[in-house]
Design a protein around this nucleic acid. Structure first.
Length: 174
DNA sequence: TTGGGTCCTG
DNA sequence: CAGGACCCAA
């Protein structure tokens, strides 16, 4: 059967990604911002992959990143307006408003323990945006590309538990 | 041609 | 978040 046909039947059979898959993907974002399609296949063993599903998952992460970067830029500009002079004065901790916004987005019910590494990545990104804007690099239409290139190297390994089919329940009840 | 990615919309 | 336009590398 053609891929197109597979996508068609996938819809008829009500197969595909569920709200829980979305929740799981969001939590995974705390570890990886740029997961490869192969990684996704490894971590979603209960999903029958086809082009539609794969691209949808890829799209999810693209949307996650978009939100992430938008917040970073917003807070960076705000910090500048607030008079912050150097990126070193910026930090992202559990008490940060920036962190609160991010957690609200990827972990709304707040039932997942966010990994420490995510705070570091968030802080690095935050400072990266701050420096770029302060130095006026944002005049270049593609100024964000440079930042993306840095952040995409900061992905960490997603815990093994995520490969488990019922990982969501396990993760949230720990 | 494809598969990722980004950007902009709704 | 999903869609669609558009870009780029494989």
């Amino acid at each position: 059967m053609s891929t197109r046909g597979a996508c068609f039947f996938s819809i008829l059979l009500r197969e595909g990604l569920s709200p829980n898959h979305l929740k799981k993907a969001k939590v995974m974002f705390f570890y990886t911002r740029y997961p490869s399609s192969n990684t996704l296949k490894m971590y979603f063993p209960d999903v029958k992959f086809n082009r539609c599903i794969t691209s949808q998952l890829i799209k999810w992460f693209s949307n996650f990143r978009e939100f992430f970067y938008i917040q970073m830029e917003k807070f960076a500009r705000q910090a500048i307006n607030d008079g912050v002079l150097t990126a070193d004065d910026l930090s992202v901790t559990c008490d940060s408003e920036l962190y609160r916004v991010l957690n609200m987005h990827y972990n709304k019910s707040n039932d997942f323990q966010v990994p420490e590494r995510f705070l570091e990545v968030a802080q690095i990104t935050f400072r990266e945006f701050f420096r770029a804007v302060v130095s006026g690099k944002d005049v270049d239409p593609s100024w964000k590309k440079a930042i993306y290139k840095v952040i995409c190297k900061l992905d960490s390994e997603v815990p093994e538990i995520f490969k488990s089919k019922n990982c969501l329940q396990k993760l949230l009840h720990e």
